[in-house]
Simulated assay, not measured.
Amino acid sequence: MTWLLAVPLLAVVAVAVVALLRRRTSGGVRLLVAVDAAVLVGALVLIAVALGAGPAQAGSVAAATETTTGGGIGGPALIAAAIAVAGSSIGAAFAVAYTGSAALAAMSERPEIFGRAMVVVGLAEGIAIYGLVIAMIMIGRA
């Protein structure tokens, strides 16, 4: 719960870094690297806590029996599913950015290729859907 309280603080520091980068680049880059290191350490601590946690304590005997016999989804499967979705979404974002800008440049010269250009952009968006499907498969097998 403590890491959740640090999120607004990190947001304020991120806004301050952007303002500092606009004025002075050398001090802003150092502060940006420090913020990135703090977020990385926080993420590593969160992953360590999630992987090291045992089964949850339930109030009723039936729920406790279900959690100890493996009825719930494991933490590693959820982390793997999150990594699959995040990685594919970031990849799709880069793909759409490059293909979208190239499609707009091509359509500005030849407007009749609109349909073909949008198909290429749509294929780039499909990368994120593939990551979502893989995440569903991982959660389903957990």
Rank of each mutant, 00 (worst) to 15 (best):
V15S: 04
V15N: 01
A16P: 01
A16I: 13
A16M: 10
V17R: 01
A19C: 07
L21D: 05
R22K: 15
R23M: 12
R23S: 15
R24N: 13
R24A: 01
T25H: 03
T25M: 12
S26W: 15
G27A: 10
G27C: 08
G27Y: 03
G27H: 04
G28F: 10
G28V: 15
V29E: 12
R30V: 15
R30A: 15
L31Q: 11
V33I: 15
A34Q: 10
A34T: 00
V35D: 04
A37K: 10
A37C: 08
A38T: 05
A38D: 03
V39C: 11
V39P: 02
V39E: 09
L40T: 09
L40Q: 04
A43W: 10
L44C: 15
L44E: 04
L44M: 14
V45A: 14
L46M: 11
A48K: 07
A50Y: 02
L51P: 06
G54D: 11
G54W: 11
P55R: 06
Q57R: 09
A58Y: 05
G59A: 08
G59M: 09
G59E: 09
G59Y: 03
S60V: 09
A62H: 11
A62K: 08
A64Q: 14
A64Y: 06
T65H: 11
T69Y: 09
G71S: 05
G71M: 00
G71A: 13
G71E: 02
G72Y: 08
I73V: 07
I73N: 02
P76A: 11
P76Y: 15
P76H: 04
I79H: 02
A81G: 03
A81M: 00
A81I: 00
A81N: 02
A82V: 05
A82Y: 01
I83S: 13
V85N: 04
A86C: 12
A86H: 02
G87A: 09
G87D: 02
S88L: 08
S89Q: 05
I90M: 15
A92C: 02
A95E: 13
A97N: 13
T99P: 00
T99Y: 05
G100L: 07
S101Q: 06
A102F: 08
A102P: 11
A103I: 00
A103F: 09
A105C: 03
